[in-house]
Amino acid sequence: MTDLSRLARRLPLVLWLTVVWILLWGTLDLGTLVFGVLVAVLITALFPPPPVFTNIVVRPVSLVQLIGYLAWDLVVSTLRVSWQALRHRGDTRAGIVAVTLLTDSDHLTAMIANGISLAPGKFVLQVDREHAICYVYVLGMRPGEDASVRREVLALEARVVRAVGSAQEVALVDRHKKLRKAGS
């Protein structure tokens, strides 16, 4: 790999470290900026980050749709949890649902778990990597809502996969969607 391509790969990290340097010093002037860049270059030269290989393919339209969905879910979940807090006053039911994911990518699993845990009322308690199972805690869950929670998590997984998954993973979630429609 050429020095130019290595520098281009490190540029976002150098920029981020420079911003952190400026924020730490609390002032933006030429000296702080120059020394921030020098320190960032020195750090990335002495401690180069290890290469990370992923099969992530960013699809901008699907990514914007995913972000919109997560923002909407944040609002709806906040309202739902607020309503339960006012209505039940500490006597809210909860449950844990095991959801078997379709994909086995660590990066996608982390994104899905973070997407679930982003909004109030749900979060991932544990991920069983060997069996691709997410254990999701759900506040305000009524008896018999297990299937609904599984559908929501799998729908989020499909959105994440369509936004950043490989072509094979997109095909996998599309096949699952077709099978689910045929079975219902």
Rank of each mutant, 00 (worst) to 15 (best):
F35W: 07
G144V: 10
V136I: 14
T18M: 09
V97N: 01
L156E: 12
R80V: 03
M141G: 06
M111A: 13
G68L: 09
A147P: 00
P51E: 12
L86D: 09
S5F: 11
Y69L: 01
R87K: 11
R150V: 11
V37H: 06
Y69C: 00
T103D: 02
Q84K: 08
I116S: 01
T109C: 01
Q84A: 06
L46S: 05
V20C: 09
L63C: 09
T44L: 04
G183Q: 15
V19P: 02
L24R: 00
L42V: 04
V14L: 10
D174V: 07
A85Q: 12
L33M: 12
G165P: 03
L38Y: 00
R162F: 03
W83V: 02
G121I: 06
E157N: 03
A71Q: 01
E145K: 04
E169C: 01
T109M: 10
V160M: 10
I116T: 09
V81S: 13
R93K: 15
I22R: 00
L23D: 03
S62P: 10
R151A: 13
A45G: 04
D3F: 12
R59P: 06
A163L: 09
V34T: 14
V99A: 05
E169S: 03
L7E: 03
I43K: 01
L13A: 14
W72M: 08
V138G: 03
F47W: 14
A94P: 02
E157A: 01
A40I: 02
G68T: 04
G183S: 15
V37S: 11
D174Q: 14
G183H: 15
T78F: 05
S117P: 09
G140M: 11
D104K: 04
V124C: 05
G26K: 05
V136C: 08
R93S: 15
V76W: 08
L33S: 04
V81A: 11
R151K: 10
V138M: 04
L79W: 13
A71D: 01
I133S: 03
L66H: 11
V153G: 03
R150L: 00
V170P: 02
A71Y: 02
V161F: 12
I112K: 02
Y135Q: 06
P51I: 07
V164Y: 05
T44D: 08
W83N: 13
T2M: 08
G144K: 00
V160K: 11
L15M: 14
L42F: 12
H131Y: 06
Y135E: 04
G90S: 12
V99W: 07
